[in-house]
């Protein structure tokens, strides 16, 4: 009696029929690979250096934003003439916290309100959040992408391994001005005299 996938199965006890060798080979190979992926993913969490789980805390928007403002007040850099450094039409402050310090970024429509300056090879504790709606934290060119949510303090330790001028773009739609939302981040190496050039770039050390 013939049948196809569109007809009821005529054989009784079809679940007892033997599985062919081709299917067995494939299921074994496929599931072996699945388990490799599982072990690898868990292994990377414990042994790898790039994991975005971090910690998260519920916060109030006002409380978190106040912490960012305090950080700016305390650590905003000054240029050679002694005036506070900022960039862009909206005067985003350039901020350098001490090595190992806390960097607060409370994104808002449509800006990342601080420009952090980091030292190469040092670890900083980033606190990422939003003052209004969901935003994306897309760090380029290394292409690290994180989700910022209002009311959540997303805590991650960043250890930059290359000097340079990094860019941020928001990659979560956050309103009609979404495409104007960019940010910036510097990684310098003071020990090797790779420092800010005061004109929106870095200089020295042959860089």
């Amino acid at each position: 009696m013939s049948y196809t996938s569109l007809q009821p199965i005529p054989q009784r006890h079809w679940w007892r029929l033997r599985v062919g060798p081709d299917e067995k080979i494939w299921i074994t190979a496929a599931y072996a690979w699945c388990l490799v992926m599982l072990v690898w993913m868990v292994g990377w969490f414990f042994l790898g250096n790039q994991n975005q789980v971090g910690n998260a805390y519920r916060v109030t928007i006002d409380g978190f934003t106040a912490k960012m403002d305090q950080m700016v007040e305390k650590y905003q850099l000054k240029d050679a003439s002694g005036s506070l450094m900022s960039e862009g039409d909206n005067d985003i402050p350039v901020v350098q916290v001490p090595v190992g310090g806390n960097v607060f970024i409370a994104a808002r429509q449509f800006e990342f309100p601080v420009i952090p300056v980091l030292e190469l090879g040092k670890t900083y504790v980033f606190h990422l959040s939003s003052q209004d709606v969901d935003h994306g934290f897309s760090l380029l060119p290394i292409n690290v992408n994180l989700q910022l949510l209002p009311g959540y303090d997303y805590v991650l330790r960043f250890t930059p391994n290359k000097t340079g001028v990094y860019r941020l773009t928001c990659n979560e739609y956050c309103g009609l001005g979404h495409h104007t939302m960019t940010g910036k981040l510097y990684v310098i190496d003071t020990a090797n005299k790779i420092v800010l050039d005061g004109k929106g770039g870095i200089t020295g050390g042959g860089a």
Binding site: I92, T169, T180, T182
Partner: peptide
């Protein structure tokens, strides 16, 4: 995506952005 081009984005030349990119 591997180059970091964002989704849901009108202008990846960032002509109107405060910090150019």
């Amino acid at each position: 995506g591997h180059l970091g081009v964002p989704r849901r984005h009108w202008d990846i030349t960032y002509a109107d952005a405060a910090l150019p990119f």
